[in-house]
Amino acid sequence: MLVAYASYLFFQLKSHSNLYDSIDEEREDNVDDSDEEEEALEISMWEEIAWLTTLTLWVSVLSGYLVDAIQGASDSWNMPVSFISVVLLPIVGNAAEHASAIMFAMKDKLDITLGVAIGSSTQISMFVIPFCVVVGWIMGQPMDLNFQLFETATLFITVLVVAFMLQEGTSNYFKGLMLILCYLIVAASFFVHVDNKSDDD
């Protein structure tokens, strides 16, 4: 999965980057936005690396506290851990991405909106989860990608739903409503679902 994600990044950013250019990019290049360009602040590459490193370390520290608090929150709120992990945490953790996707959608920039939404999901499923498993092996933690049947079926069905919604390349309010309702169905399913645990767990 990590090799597939690396190949996808190389394909998108290096070898076939022209396939991912915006349709309106040529029109926007011809428009005079000199005032906005002058106001934009630039930082050096080393400043970017320093900021990313600092924020990554800080987020990793906060994530440790967050993970430790999930079980207590599950007990006190009377909610399944899977519901908190799959529904509540991603909403809070990706709030900035959700806000930017909504802003771009309101400006009729559907290609950017889909890039934000689908790119984030692809990054989590193809890079973050396998990378966490590899890091867990290095740290001596018994982690694997052996998900339960319910989680695997949910992932498979959501990929199919999104693929069918994107097939025509058009959007309307009904498709948006169907996606929201599908998300609510998945959330409700995780709220009431209980995995059958073996005696070893």
Rank of each mutant, 00 (worst) to 15 (best):
M1E: 13
M1A: 15
L2S: 05
A4T: 03
Y5A: 09
S7V: 12
Y8N: 07
F10I: 15
F10A: 12
Q12N: 04
Q12A: 14
L13F: 07
L13H: 08
K14V: 10
S15C: 05
H16T: 01
L19K: 12
D21Y: 14
D21T: 13
E25H: 00
N30G: 15
V31K: 14
D33R: 15
S34H: 04
E37Q: 13
E37W: 09
L41W: 02
E42R: 08
E42I: 08
M45D: 06
M45N: 13
M45V: 05
W46E: 07
W46D: 10
E47A: 15
E48Y: 12
I49L: 11
T53E: 03
T54W: 06
V59P: 04
G64R: 00
Y65W: 13
V67Y: 12
A69R: 08
I70W: 09
I70G: 12
Q71D: 04
G72R: 02
A73R: 02
S74D: 05
D75M: 11
S76D: 11
N78M: 15
N78V: 13
M79K: 01
F83P: 00
N94P: 10
A96G: 07
A96S: 14
E97I: 03
E97P: 10
M103G: 01
F104G: 08
M106L: 10
K107E: 14
K109N: 15
L110K: 14
L110V: 11
I112Y: 06
I112H: 08
A117Q: 11
A117T: 07
I118Y: 01
G119S: 11
T122Y: 02
Q123W: 05
Q123Y: 12
S125D: 02
V128S: 09
I129D: 06
I129Q: 11
I129A: 13
C132S: 14
V134L: 14
V135W: 04
G136R: 11
W137V: 05
W137Y: 14
W137F: 08
G140P: 08
P142A: 00
M143E: 06
D144P: 00
N146W: 04
N146H: 12
Q148Y: 07
F150E: 03
T152G: 13
I157Q: 01
V159N: 02
V159G: 01
V161R: 00
A163C: 12
F164D: 00
M165A: 15
L166G: 06
Q167K: 15
T170P: 04
Y173F: 05
F174N: 09
K175Y: 01
G176F: 08
L177V: 12
L177I: 11
Y183S: 01
L184F: 14
L184H: 09
L184M: 07
I185R: 03
V186K: 02
A187P: 06
A187Y: 00
A188W: 14
F191E: 00
F191N: 05
F191L: 15
V194A: 05
V194D: 10
V194G: 02
D195K: 04
N196A: 02
D199Q: 10
D200S: 14
